[in-house]
Design a protein around this nucleic acid. Structure first.
Length: 428
RNA sequence: GGAGGGGUGGCUGAGUGGUCGAAAGCACCGGUCUUGAAAACCGGCGUAUCGAGAGGUACCCAGGGUUCGAAUCCCUGCCCCUCCGCCA
């Protein structure tokens, strides 16, 4: 959520920033609600003050009236009338406040000034490229064909077990998948200073509200039919960022850096017919996620570091990639700035997203009430939150398969993964 | 699944109808003392929101209710703890 004070005091500035994201802030409506909120709040509060003062004086007044043998009913009646007027004003205020909150919680984060203008992913801007796509002297296969001919990757069986957009991995492919997870976690904890964390894969709606998936994006989620308001996580970002919901943490603890491996579940509603082949887009996939909580003044620099941590994995794996900055129109709801890292897929002759690294500034923290105590002011202040995939494991697996395929259909194992594969150098 | 006990400020923990936004301790901040530090002593110290300010209002897990008046009484929900049973 944006700072309501800022929206109130500088609606035009905020509206202009949101326009980059393709969002139209309804300034007139906001002003109208705000005016009536102010009026009603003033009214409700003065009635409350009157009611409180009256109630306070009642104890004595009742005692005195009784001592004199007077009727105390008129005294009570006045209190009753005050109570009624008060609760009417409170109800009216609550309803305007609710409208305001509902509207504001649907307003996306403002983009950083450096975010390029643009409506779609075509307007994203490449900022760097690493590695040279390999030249093949044979016809390249995609990971589906490679996996099928090895007999270790099977989409048909997964469809039977569940339905479309699931996969079954076996043998060395399953192990390679696990090796990637181990390698990523070990690198981030051992070299990049992250603490490993393991969290629930089922979360409540408060957590989803905190990171911004709710209320706007419920259709992207798998909801449990249980009446407890539980959802499967779409990303580790949700449980891990909510670690500090409603917390005030010590300045000495900052920055907090978590690396977390989880499965992720996405309904992919609205992506029918898109990436239907293979494991690019699945209802269930695994990811190693990096999450950081930092002091506000550090978050811009932290995003650069965090993106570097994700890129380091691709470099160690020897996979060519490019890094782009998302334009306003492609930027996520909660994000102020996002870098996508795209890995080279020889079968598609394209770079495809394998990581998305974002700075949310205080947008999530405000919803989460995730704060730190600033020693300079002695006051609790909002943290900045960031996260990025480091990396999406399924996509990393297929990138390794395709980039390291050999003429005979076997797959060479990148050197850094060999220790996790019992020293094996190739599959098949 | 059965039986009990709880949820109060950054933390611990008093408080069972008005004098309570809430004792006390710890932590923290400022000061006195000290060569310095510690100790001791003095003072300050919840969050949010409205207001230029004085100040107001809300908040004692959440949501309802009783009452002129609720942290305190009643109902519902959520969460935690202890014991028994079952169990990866």
């Amino acid at each position: 959520m944006l700072d309501p004070k800022l929206v109130r005091s500088e609606p035009q500035t905020i509206a202009a920033a949101l326009a980059v994201k393709g969002f139209t802030l309804d300034v007139d409506k906001l002003n109208e609600w705000e005016a009536s909120r102010k009026e009603l709040q003033d009214k409700a509060q003065s009635l409350q003050a009157e009611r409180n003062a009256y109630a306070k004086s009642m104890g004595k007044a009742i005692g005195e009236a009784k001592a004199k043998g007077e009727d105390i009913e008129p005294l009570k009646a006045k209190g009753e009338a005050l109570k009624l007027a008060c609760s009417e004003a409170e109800t009216a205020l609550a309803s305007v406040q609710q409208q305001l909150d509902a509207y504001l919680s649907g307003v996306p984060n403002t983009p950083d000034p450096v975010v390029p203008q643009g409506a779609t992913e075509d307007d994203n801007v490449e900022i760097r490229r690493w590695g040279e796509p390999r030249e093949f002297d044979f016809d390249v296969k995609d990971h589906v064909d490679l996996g099928a001919s090895l007999g270790l990757l099977d989409f048909e069986t997964a469809t039977k077990i569940t339905g479309s957009r699931f996969a079954v991995m076996k043998g060395e492919i399953a192990r390679l998948h696990r090796a990637l997870i181990q390698f990523m976690l070990n690198t981030h904890t051992g070299e990049h200073g992250y603490q490993e964390i393991n969290v629930p894969y089922v979360v409540n709606s408060d957590s989803l509200y905190g990171t911004g998936q709710l209320p706007k994006f419920e259709e992207d989620l798998f909801k449990l039919t249980d009446d407890r308001d539980f959802y499967l996580i779409p990303t580790a970002e949700v449980p891990v960022t909510n670690v500090f919901r409603d917390e005030i943490i010590d300045a000495a603890q900052l920055p907090v850096k978590f690396a977390c491996h989880t499965p992720c579940f996405r309904s992919e509603a609205g992506s029918y017919g898109k990436d239907t082949r293979g494991m690019i887009r699945q209802h269930q996939f695994e990811k190693v996620e990096l999450v950081q909580f930092v002091r506000p003044e550090e978050s811009t620099e932290t995003l650069e570091q965090l993106t570097g941590h994700a890129e380091a994995i691709l470099q160690k794996l020897g996979l060519p990639y490019r890094t782009i900055i998302l334009c306003g129109g492609d930027l996520g709801f909660s994000s102020a700035r996002t870098y996508d890292i795209e890995v080279w897929l020889p079968s598609q002759q394209l770079y495809r997203e394998i990581s998305s690294c974002s700075n949310f500034r205080d947008f999530q923290a405000r919803r989460l009430k995730a704060r730190w105590r600033n020693p300079e002011t002695g006051k609790p202040e909002l943290l900045h939150t960031l996260n990025g995939s480091g990396l999406a494991v399924g996509r990393a697996l297929l990138a390794v398969m395709e980039n390291y395929q050999q003429a005979d259909g076997s797959i060479a194992i990148p050197e850094v993964l060999q220790p996790y594969m019992g020293g094996q150098t190739a599959i098949g």
